[in-house]
């Protein structure tokens, strides 16, 4: 509560100066300037107290927000695996169906062999198309990887900001600021580098496969 004591003391000084001013000639410049200075310091101390409170509050909330991000990432991963499992089951069934259709040869069908072009061939084509769609469904789930990577980068930035805020709280003192500064989760990467990567991940200036192929071609790739 050192800060409160300081503010109280400054308020007393302020009041004393104001009291003095009452008994001095109105144009006395020294006391007037001292009064302004005291009020400025007083206001600054109050402002600092407010900021310090917000800082401590933000520092407490950041780990929770970071954990929420991790939970979202985990939930997305679990959901994606669930859909993948179902898609894989469908693929297996399509494979089975394809085998059954392929077993319907002219020799085995005998007199019904004429059914093959009309019924079996379209069924085969349908199975093939189903497999294509299921594969497209599976590859579309790569959104989880792309979004997950961005979430991980945001998480790393959160950790970095948390670390910096803790440093500020420890350095300038704050209620209950007994926490030691953790090593940043970013570790080897600076916040700036991570933020830059996050910008990249928006893909605004990234290249597509065609352009990647062009660049590789310059290195002699076919």
């Amino acid at each position: 509560m050192e800060n409160n004591d300081s503010v109280n003391a400054l308020e007393q000084v302020n009041q004393a100066i104001a009291e003095c001013e009452k008994h001095l000639p109105p144009a006395e410049p020294l006391y007037s300037s001292l009064g302004q200075l005291a009020r400025f310091v007083n206001d600054a101390m109050r402002e600092h107290q407010t900021i310090e409170g917000r800082l401590a509050s933000t520092t407490e909330q950041l780990p929770e927000a970071a954990e929420q991000l991790l939970d979202i990432n985990k939930g997305m991963e679990e959901g994606t695996h669930k859909v993948m499992g179902l898609a894989e089951d469908l693929l297996d069934r399509q494979d089975e169906l394809e085998k059954l259709l392929n077993a319907l040869t002219a020799e085995r069908l005998g007199e019904a062999a004429s059914l093959i072009p009309d019924a079996v061939d379209p069924a085969r084509a349908c199975v093939e198309k189903n497999k294509e769609i299921i594969m497209e469904l599976l590859t579309s789930l790569s959104f989880q990887d792309l979004m997950g990577q961005r979430l991980k980068k945001i998480f790393t930035v959160f950790r970095e900001v948390e670390s910096r805020l803790l440093e500020l709280v420890v350095e300038f003192g704050g209620s209950g600021a007994t926490t030691t500064v953790e090593d940043s989760a970013a570790g080897k990467k600076s916040k700036d580098v991570i933020l830059k990567e996050l910008e990249w991940s928006k893909r605004s200036d990234t290249v597509d496969q065609e352009l990647a192929d062009d660049i590789l071609a310059q290195f002699g790739f076919k």
Binding site: E77, L91, K131, M135, L138, S142, D145, G148, Q149
Partner: peptide, 17 residues
């Protein structure tokens, strides 16, 4: 090689097909 298990699964499925 991928740190995301979902991506490994996607690549494996494609390779299997």
């Amino acid at each position: 090689v991928d740190d995301f298990s979902t991506m490994r699964r996607i690549v494996k499925n494609i390779l299997k097909q």
